[in-house]
Every structure is written in structure tokens, then in C-alpha cells.
Amino acid sequence: MPLDPSFNESVPQGDNVSRKVCDHCGFVAYVNPKIVVGSVVRSGEKVLLCRRAIEPRKGFWTIPAGYLELAETPEAGAKREAREEACANLNISGLLAVYTIAHLSQVQIFYRATFAEPEIAAGEESLEVGLFGWDEIPWEDIAFPSVKWALDHERSVHLGKATAPFANPDGETGGLSE
């Protein structure tokens, strides 16, 4: 990405990382990780999945999730994403996991949730939505590694085998080849 003519890459005084610094006033334009928020939504023994209508990974299945907006709490963002992608209203029951996807500079915060109301429908960012039992989940068509982690972690909590919150599984960084 080309720099604005008034910005140059340099290491600001007292820092040790090269950043965009304004030549005129010394303003440092920090670039920080993006925060993704979402939920594993359970209804009895089934979980909500959304088939993506947008890139990346259009046509693949995911949990309702997306980027946190400015001045929004992570919980409110997770609820908003469920409304946008699955026309679903949620009750957040607790933090499930915080994952880091270093190569994308993302921090992903996922919650455990249930439906406040039972209705769901595909939103603008989804081709279709559905409730899936564990053996019905289209594992080969899951959009991202962190979705698989979240589903596995939520199932462990649901079955009483573990307690949340979780982090990346050992050795996992979130690359699509993993």
C-alpha cells in the first residue's frame, strides 16, 4: 500500500518497530490487529451454521462471526453478526475461546450462545443457514480452521469434558492448510 506523501516508514523515538510517521507533525499511524467476534449457537444437540455468501470462502460453512465495529462491545458484536448472517437473536452464555490468527493479524473472540427466539433465516451474507447435529456438520466444507476449533471446544464444554475459555490448540496458527 503506497504511503501518503506526508508519511514515511520509520521507527518512532522510544519504539522499536517501523511505523507510518507524519513528516510534518510526527503523528504515528499505528496499524493494529483486527478483532473478529462470533458465537457457537446451540439449540439442544444442534449448532447453527451459515453457508457464506461472500468471500473469503464463499459457499463454505461457518459460525456467525465477523469484524467488531468501533464503539461496540465484543458481546454486542457477536449478537449483531448473528442477526446479520442468520436473522437470529441470541443469549450469550459465556466466553468460549480467544484465538490468534497471526498471519491475518486477527484476534478472534467466540462465545457460547443460545437462541433468544427460535427463528432463523439466511441474512445478506449467508446463502443458507441450518441447525446441525454433530454427525451432520459438513466438516469438509467448514470455512476456517478456527471454526473447527470453536465447534470442537464448544462440544467439549457441552459434554462436560472441559471448561472454557480456550485458546488456539497446540501448534495451530489458523492457516487454511492446517
Results as ranks from 00 to 15, higher is better:
residue 88 A to P: 12
residue 30 Y to I: 10
residue 18 S to F: 12
residue 65 A to H: 14
residue 63 I to R: 06
residue 71 A to Q: 14
residue 11 V to Y: 14
residue 139 W to L: 07
residue 128 E to K: 02
residue 134 W to I: 00
residue 104 L to V: 00
residue 14 G to S: 06
residue 139 W to D: 11
residue 100 T to Q: 09
residue 17 V to D: 04
residue 6 S to Y: 13
residue 70 L to E: 14
residue 111 Y to V: 03
residue 65 A to C: 14
residue 94 G to A: 01
residue 121 A to S: 14
residue 33 P to Y: 10
residue 39 S to G: 05
residue 151 L to G: 04
residue 125 E to I: 00
residue 20 K to S: 08
residue 155 R to A: 14
residue 167 A to R: 12
residue 24 H to D: 15
residue 112 R to V: 07
residue 40 V to M: 03
residue 121 A to N: 11
residue 37 V to H: 12
residue 92 I to M: 10
residue 57 R to V: 07
residue 164 A to W: 10
residue 9 E to G: 04
residue 64 P to I: 01
residue 142 I to Q: 03
residue 122 A to F: 05
residue 51 R to C: 01
residue 14 G to H: 04
residue 3 L to M: 04
residue 85 E to L: 07
residue 21 V to A: 06
residue 20 K to D: 15
residue 40 V to I: 15
residue 62 T to H: 09
residue 7 F to R: 11
residue 167 A to Q: 12
residue 158 H to M: 12
residue 114 T to H: 13
residue 175 G to E: 10
residue 91 N to T: 09
residue 50 C to R: 04
residue 34 K to C: 11
residue 138 P to Y: 02
residue 10 S to F: 11
residue 30 Y to H: 15
residue 27 F to Y: 13
residue 148 K to F: 05
residue 38 G to D: 03
residue 55 E to L: 06
residue 92 I to F: 10
residue 99 Y to D: 03
residue 35 I to R: 13
residue 137 I to H: 01
residue 117 E to Q: 13
residue 153 H to F: 15
residue 149 W to T: 06
residue 168 N to F: 09
residue 157 V to A: 06
residue 99 Y to S: 00
residue 58 K to V: 08
residue 75 E to I: 15
residue 13 Q to R: 11
residue 74 P to Q: 07
residue 94 G to P: 05
residue 107 V to G: 08
residue 79 K to P: 08
residue 96 L to Y: 02
residue 62 T to Q: 12
residue 79 K to V: 10
residue 129 V to I: 01
residue 40 V to Y: 06
residue 130 G to N: 06
residue 38 G to H: 03
residue 160 G to M: 03
residue 40 V to C: 08
residue 77 G to Q: 08
residue 63 I to C: 08
residue 143 A to N: 01
residue 56 P to A: 08
